[in-house]
């Protein structure tokens, strides 16, 4: 690691102020940032830890909404939402491994927007709202490509607000080495519409598979997906673990499996 200054503000305002001075980066759970720093792939002058900021942790449910504080760890979400929104709990409970889940946070994952991360699929799949220190951003506007979001340099996610789905499920096919999603598909039935969000697969990061949404809107059953052509292979990531055609195929398979899991 390169040397850096470490600050631990107590409020969101202090944190934002700290981010405005010099080349600073937010440190949430650190489960992506610290490995990045260890590999010397980033050289911030300052890390602004959110660990001491009040009010960023915890889950509130009610009025058809689940609001998760940005600093809430995957482990807490997996445990506490198991009853209320099993799809989110299951997704959270399959991120990384137990030690990673104890420190990694939903806010950190979303701000990083790794194309193989799981949370972007849930946020986009449920049409959630990303709440920051200064505004609310709809999921459809938040994700802007690989490792790119609508966040400004000094903007901090404070919470994520999910609408309560009628049913939802996440089907993930692991990349065999990293266990990140080679393809992960989040399917949700909400009031009046079906949303299908895909992570791991696309060159452009998480995306909505609109053909599947339309088909499932008409007939919410695996057979409705079966009839579809997979998304275009040339838009999918091609690597050692699967060329574009394989990923495109898996998008379809995982979508069917997620629909089946919705019951």
């Amino acid at each position: 690691m390169y040397a850096f200054e470490f600050v631990k503000p107590k409020t969101v305002e202090e944190a934002v102020a700290a981010l405005r001075e010099g080349e600073a980066k937010v440190l949430a759970g650190g489960q992506t940032l610290i490995p990045t720093l260890k590999q010397r792939l980033a050289a911030p002058e300052k890390l602004v830890s959110l660990a001491g900021v009040e009010g960023l942790r915890g889950i509130r449910t009610g009025d058809g909404v689940v609001e998760i504080g940005a600093g809430t760890t995957h482990a807490v979400i997996a445990r506490e939402l198991a009853g209320a929104v099993p799809a989110l709990a299951a997704l959270a409970g399959d991120i990384g491994d137990p030690a990673v889940r104890n420190r990694g946070t939903i806010g950190g994952s979303l701000a990083n927007n790794d194309p193989s991360a799981d949370w972007p699929a849930a946020v986009l799949g449920l049409g959630a709202t990303v709440v920051t220190d200064r505004r609310e951003i709809a999921a459809d506007d938040f994700f802007q490509g690989l490792f790119t979001t609508a966040l400004e340099e000094d903007e901090i996610i404070t919470a994520v607000r999910f609408p309560m789905p009628k049913t939802a499920a996440y089907a993930k096919f692991d990349q065999p080495a990293s266990r990140f999603a080679l393809v992960g598909v989040f399917v949700a039935r909400l009031d009046g519409n079906v949303r299908v969000a895909v992570t791991g697969a696309s060159e452009n990061g998480v995306f909505r598979w609109q053909a599947a949404e339309a088909a499932l809107g008409a007939d919410f059953a695996p057979a409705a997906v079966e009839a579809l052509a997979p998304p275009p292979a040339e838009e999918m990531i091609s690597d050692l673990h699967g060329a574009g055609d394989y990923r495109a195929h898996l998008v379809k398979v995982m979508t069917k499996r997620a629909v089946a899991a919705c019951g």
Binding site: F6, L27, G30, Q31, I34, P35, K38, L47, P98, A99, V100, N102, R103
Partner: peptide
């Protein structure tokens, strides 16, 4: 449980 290599 935490990874002490992934924590300052």
């Amino acid at each position: 449980l935490a990874k002490s290599c992934t924590m300052l």
